[in-house]
Design a protein around this nucleic acid. Structure first.
Lengths: 230, 230
DNA sequence: CTCTGTCTCACCATTTCTGGGGAGGGGAAA
DNA sequence: TTTCCCCTCCCCAGAAATGGTGAGACAGAG
């Protein structure tokens, strides 16, 4: 959910391609999940703009089982196989249906270098058999499109403009990593065989590079940007 | 570079498929970058085992421009377009050539939910024109194979067993999320309109559920398990 | 060969977090 | 209905983190 605007001149391409796909497959909706935390749309899709606005306003990003489910998944997934048991999820499902979202869906997660995350989704209203045969027949194509579309969209994601992700030094990476696995400052310093004072220098410089307000924030940012891996 | 062993029974499949690909495309090497931080091999490829061992011993993971370049890239990349300018990179390039690695290569990065990272690489020894026409003709297939192979390999990566994930309560999720974006305890309490004392109860119960040693650890775990999204 | 970045060490005072307690109301599930 | 979990509130003292400043050595890049 981090952004870097590298080249914004491709959105038209995406839009026309997505409409071509929609006609070609006779599928109602084919869409990105425009997963920008600040609400800006950076992907493009065929959903009703009203639904997009409502989705963001209601904070459905944190409720939608499609997003939640795909966020921890490797592979493409059919909506039927997600967890719709919670009350919030059911309310969301109903609201989505009321806004004309298909009852069937298939989503493919894609990730970027700095923890960016996007979904390529096709959805439709039909029965299970019809849907299953569609997804099976077109699985390869969908994966390919997801690959192209999402990765382009990820590059287009708005948010932070110039702030080129500052690389952390090796020591800073070690520091952040050990903090992320629960070590206290004293323990980290001990593990790295340096004084706690030195350690603090690393934490502060990492915090500075990451634009973080405190240690927890710094670790969280380093993780979400993929600069440390835990 | 994280691991979760979900099903190890597919390695054979991968191996035979990769050999089929190798024959089919008449390509010398087609390989994973077995990117396991502990040195265990979890992918499979057609490189000489001696080279694999040497690669790991020498710590080439942190030098190899293919790995470094793809790690911050969205799209597949031809080796020619990478940065081979540093001294270490040239030394690596020579060593690789001495071990029979092709002079041409094409690598596709794929990522997993917890920052896992893998590469699908094809390489060969030939001239530029031949290579370019090969990659152009087979781009789609290569991307598809990369998708299937890498994601399977990522799931096979050794390391940690799947931990049963304790669900966090809504309040706990909010707490962890706000902490992850840099709020102090006082600010979080203020934002949620609760007393700081109450907030502490959430932090502690979240910490308990996540098996975390401190707040930073708890936030890191919640993030890496996808229980909060930042 | 300079310059930039990394790595290492030190002190101060203040703020913040942590780890123990205990307690009541509400809702959902069994 | 009981039980379990979630939400809310309170106290205290010790431990840990933070913010600011300063400085020397060493390496690699231009």
């Amino acid at each position: 959910m981090i952004a870097r605007l590298e080249c914004a001149d491709r959105l038209d391409e995406l839009q026309s391609a997505i409409e071509w796909l929609r006609d070609h497959y006779a599928i109602e909706d084919m869409v990105y999940h425009w997963v920008s935390s600040n609400g800006e749309q950076y992907g493009c899709g065929t959903y009703d703009p009203k639904w997009v606005v409502r989705y963001l306003e209601k904070g459905y990003l944190r409720i939608d089982p499609v997003v939640i489910g795909c966020y921890q998944r490797f592979h493409p997934v059919d909506w039927k196989r997600l967890d719709w048991s919670s009350k919030a999820a059911r309310a969301f499902q109903k609201d989505a249906a009321d806004h004309g979202i298909g009852n069937q869906g298939f989503s493919i997660p894609i990730r970027g270098p700095n923890g960016q995350f996007a979904l390529f989704t096709v959805s439709h209203t039909c029965g299970d058999e019809e849907w299953d045969s569609f997804t099976e027949l077109n699985r390869r194509d969908l994966i390919l499109y997801a690959h192209y579309f999402n990765q382009t969209a990820l590059r287009l994601e708005p948010g932070r403009k110039p702030e080129p992700t500052q690389q952390l030094s090796p020591r800073e990476v070690e520091t952040m990593t050990l903090l992320a696995v629960g070590y206290s400052r004293a323990q980290v310093a001990d593990t790295l065989n340096i004084s706690e004072h030195t350690l603090r220098v690393y934490i502060e410089s990492a915090r500075f590079k990451l634009g973080a307000l405190n240690t927890t924030h710094a670790v969280a940012r380093a993780m979400s940007r993929g600069q440390i891996v835990v």
